[in-house]
Design a binder for these strands. Sequence first.
DNA 1: AAGTTGTGTCAATAGCACGGACAAGGCTGG
DNA 2: CCAGCCTTGTCCGTGCTATTGACACAACTT
Lengths: 205, 205
Amino acid sequence: MARFRETVRTLLRERLLDAAFERVAEHGFDKLRMAHLAGDVGVSRQTLYSEFPSKEAVGEALFRRELERCLVGIQQGLDAHPGDLRAAVEAAVGFTLTLARRNPLIRAMLTSTGEGGLLPYLTTRSAAAFELATTALGTYVAETWPSIDPVARDLAVDTAVRLTASHVVQSAASPEESARRIADTTVRVALSTGAERLPAGTARP
Amino acid sequence: MARFRETVRTLLRERLLDAAFERVAEHGFDKLRMAHLAGDVGVSRQTLYSEFPSKEAVGEALFRRELERCLVGIQQGLDAHPGDLRAAVEAAVGFTLTLARRNPLIRAMLTSTGEGGLLPYLTTRSAAAFELATTALGTYVAETWPSIDPVARDLAVDTAVRLTASHVVQSAASPEESARRIADTTVRVALSTGAERLPAGTARP
DNA sequence: AAGTTGTGTCAATAGCACGGACAAGGCTGG
DNA sequence: CCAGCCTTGTCCGTGCTATTGACACAACTT
């Protein structure tokens, strides 16, 4: 019955996150003021607090929304190469690294120096991001490459996600080159049997 | 300060008009029920009455919104042919007649038989539509053809608008053919001096 | 040490949507 | 013809929610 009020709530949330995106992208998260954010949307500060219980919640929601948008591109990159693990991973990772380099929010997150920044969401508190990305890549691999050994598959997925995250926060080369290297590594891990002959002098438990 | 509530109000208005458009286009204006309209958007009937004081106001707003959309196309048709009066009028009139033939709202307005229909807005109560269309065409002609005699210009603009309205409610031929004829008539009126020699036997006051 | 700024919380007020009910008028079927 | 039903338009009481203004608290500045 009250369907309209629900859409208003989501609209308010979107507007708040839009305004937060603008301010954070320009001046960083620590320079963001709750009063300014509420004023941008044309709402009282308490209304903002009724939607987001704290400033930290704003940052978390902001990061989650951007992450979900990113995951859409990752999923598209995977789906564009069904059956070709290397190309799929390369496309998905390349998209992620390119987006991370261009997205002003992520740039602001990485360049923020202060204590109350958003950087933890990309590093120490990135469990949610890891989980989502790992699930997306894991289901893709499990569906299109069911023959791969599950142990190797999980290792490969985890490797791809963690390497990508590493390159997001500290890119060594171009996104394309990094994506190529990560895809190469992922394929190597995925196709390994765990029983290869090791070079002489290498111990294995 | 309260900018968000304002956008919510306009959003509600748009949603209501969207729902009204759907229902009117399908079943006609007289079959539209205020309770259904409110239910479609997910709002109480009283909220609907707070936005539109009467059902007639809904129909009026619905017609005005459609008219304004139509005027955008008319303006584009005029602007696409600067300096060529015949082509500009033909494009604008052709767009209008084609839109009127395809638009389900206008079709429903014309086919409604009942007393409480929307037809008056296209005929007896079409002062607003005439005014807007006349202004658009008038400013175009005045800007791009300043050399035309003002009397002939006003006559031509009025003729074009009224002929177009006539073809909207009672189309004789295809929109293209009608547009061509109306444009021809408009140009003849616009370029007339009011002092032509009349055929023998014709009286002039 | 005092002032400033910003976060988070609380209480009182005002506004708005809601549900329920009502009168008035028109339509329909018996 | 008339009784019932539907629909429009209006009113009022209620409840939810945003707003306003204030406050405590912490960190930083002067």
